[in-house]
Design a protein around this nucleic acid. Structure first.
Length: 316
DNA sequence: GCGTCCAGGTCTACC
DNA sequence: GGTAGACCTGGACGC
């Protein structure tokens, strides 16, 4: 641990087995953020932020290295042993250190879709850095709204209620803290960020987090079923959102992804995608089994290439 | 310019 | 246990 420009800097290294592509992992081609929409990738260096339970918001600089990643965590408060352990656990989860890409890629021998995905996005791991509250904000904003409006709501939440951390000559804006949102009026949030009915579930999820709801690392230690049950207990979080938030592998189909997977699996556009979800889930389970989450992430990040070979409806 | 429709789910009431 | 209807808002679309 050293001091630099008024910040405590904790350096660490994380080994990641091949295949591993750092850039594809932290900045997925479809544009989904790894931790916050305001993080920055510049060649082999990535600046982002995350919130640790005992230390608040910290800045994170990650650099691709031989055999993995070198990291520096910038914090106002010194990271104690518990904080360091939490940090390493979160980054390992984010980098998908335990994703079993070899098993997924082995399917390429018999599945032409996997072969194409492997060629296009070789080394992309599936993890995400964000914690339960940030993932819940994402999924609630995605509900019943076109992508453009979802992005408007998320960016407004960050700009109106979020925090920023300045470190290493950079500034990164990050999601609001659950404690702040749990104490903010529903009506104020609704009007300020045009959240509509979503303001109520956002405040109630925040209150649950403040009340001791399990962190993403704690959910990881549970079974997939236990984690899903806990998440579905949150007001505003249903089956779809729970699968997005959970660190266990799922197959979270909404109307948009259901349409895409139906087109890929059955070669035609479904008249009613929502009603086809059960059929798609069954076929995905049969064809890809435990790797259906791998397929899900790879497909949604490879649509521009896949659309040259499959008839895929463009998103709204 | 104005009215209508509907979107990357979830909850609740009702049967 | 299954299902219809309501829910905010703003952009797209037709006229």
């Amino acid at each position: 641990m050293e001091r630099r420009a008024g910040m405590n800097v904790y350096s660490f290294e994380i080994d990641v087995d091949d295949p591993f592509d750092f850039g594809l992992t932290v900045k997925k081609p479809a544009g989904w953020h790894w931790s916050t929409p305001f993080e920055v990738l510049d060649d082999r260096v990535f600046w982002t932020a995350l919130r640790l339970s005992g230390c608040g918001l910290i800045g994170l600089r990650l650099t691709a290295s031989e055999g993995g990643v070198k990291g520096e965590a910038f914090s106002r408060r010194k990271l104690d042993d518990k904080g360091q352990e939490e940090l390493i656990g979160r980054v390992r989860l984010g980098l998908g250190v335990e994703d079993y890409l070899e098993g997924f890629y082995a399917l390429a021998d018999q599945d032409p879709l996997i072969r194409r995905l492997k060629d296009d996005l070789f080394g992309m791991r599936l993890g995400f850095l964000s914690d339960v509250f940030e993932r819940a904000l994402l999924t609630i904003c995605l509900q019943m709204a076109p992508m453009k409006r979802s992005n408007q709501m998320m960016k407004c939440l960050i700009q109106c209620y979020g925090e920023e951390v300045r470190f290493d000559g950079r500034k990164v804006q990050h999601w609001p803290a659950a404690k702040l949102i749990s104490g903010t009026g529903v009506e104020e949030m609704r009007k300020r960020c045009n959240l509509g009915y979503r303001a109520e579930p956002i405040r109630r999820v925040a209150a649950a987090i403040v009340g001791g709801f399990p962190s993403v690392l704690e959910l990881r230690r549970m079974s997939a079923e236990e984690a899903a049950k806990a998440l579905k207990g949150l007001y505003g979080v249903g089956i779809y959102s729970a699968q997005i938030i959970s660190p266990h592998y799922g197959f979270p189909l909404d109307v948009w992804s259901a349409r895409i997977f139906y087109e890929i699996l059955f070669g035609e556009t479904p008249a009613e995608p929502r009603k086809a979800i059960g059929k798609i889930e069954a076929e995905a389970e049969r064809r890809w089994g435990r790797y259906r989450w791998h397929v899900f992430v790879y497909v949604l990040n490879d649509l521009s290439n896949l659309s040259k070979h499959y008839r895929i409806t463009k998103p709204v």
